[in-house]
């Protein structure tokens, strides 16, 4: 009896370790290499709507799990509820975990519009942790106008300064692939109404977006702001840096 029990425990332990190793492997495999599509985007700046094979086995379950969790925002589920915010915040953490798992999976697959749809849906949730994971999921996919709109509306115009660096990094892809005008408009508009903390992060991340075409726009933006504000000083510094590095 004792021998059988031991064998059983060994079996389950090895199954558990095997699964853990598998999940670690997911991290180590080559990620989805979206720059293979680079030439496509240079010639056609629209969205990649190519349907891709969508492995339903893991992600379908994950997606269903996430959707079920999302329903908990409109009712009380089995999450701690000891203080008024605990339920929704714990729920957000759970969704965040699932979205990061989905990101791991997406990194190892061809691009799939479904992932972008999910990312956009969860960028709308007013919880910075959920948004962080949704943005990470979005970063595994090719750029699209819908995704761009979502980054602007649901991250740049949201109030969590911790997300700005991620969003600006993601926007650099759009800049590189020819969406400069929309980015300049979105950044100048966001800068006008952002809180000081967000403004500072926007100003810090602005340098890659300054070039001969945008220099005057961002200079104008700096002129209409409080001269002594830290964010405006950083903005002026980035503009001067561009002038000094200009070849």
């Amino acid at each position: 009896m004792r021998m059988k029990l031991t064998a059983l425990i060994f079996f389950f332990t090895f199954v558990a370790l095997f699964l853990i190793n598998k999940s670690e492997e997911l991290w180590s495999r080559d990620p989805h290499n979206e720059i293979h599509h680079f030439s496509h985007y240079q010639s056609n700046k629209n969205i990649d709507r190519t349907p891709a094979s969508f492995d339903t086995s893991i992600s379908q379950n994950l997606e269903e799990e996430i959707q079920k969790l999302k329903d908990c925002y409109s009712k009380i589920c089995n999450f701690p509820n000891k203080d008024p915010r605990m339920h929704d915040l714990a729920l957000g953490q759970k969704i965040k975990d699932k979205l990061f798992k989905l990101k791991e999976k997406a990194l190892n697959e061809k691009s799939n519009p479904k992932y972008s749809e999910i990312a956009r849906e969860y960028l709308k949730i007013e919880d910075g942790h959920v948004k962080e994971a949704a943005l990470a999921l979005m970063s595994t996919q090719p750029i699209s106008s819908e995704n761009f709109h979502s980054i602007v509306q649901d991250v740049l115009k949201y109030h969590d300064d911790a997300l700005i660096e991620d969003a600006m990094m993601e926007l650099e892809r759009y800049q590189k692939l020819g969406h400069q005008e929309q980015i300049t408009e979105a950044l100048t508009e966001s800068f006008q109404v952002a809180s000081p903390m967000i403004k500072e992060k926007l100003a810090k991340g602005l340098f890659p977006f300054i070039n001969e075409d945008t220099f005057n726009k961002y200079s104008e933006m700096a002129q209409n702001q409080n001269w002594n504000a830290k964010s405006v000083k950083i903005l002026r510094s980035n503009l001067r840096r561009f002038e000094r590095e200009r070849m």
Binding site: F10, T13, A90, Q93, D97
Partner: peptide, 21 residues
């Protein structure tokens, strides 16, 4: 030994669990 392996497995999971709470 089996117990230890289970514990190691659990520890591994805990280390890598994501939580911002």
């Amino acid at each position: 030994r089996a117990k230890n392996l289970v514990l190691i497995g659990l520890l591994f999971i805990n280390i890598f669990s994501v939580s911002a709470f």
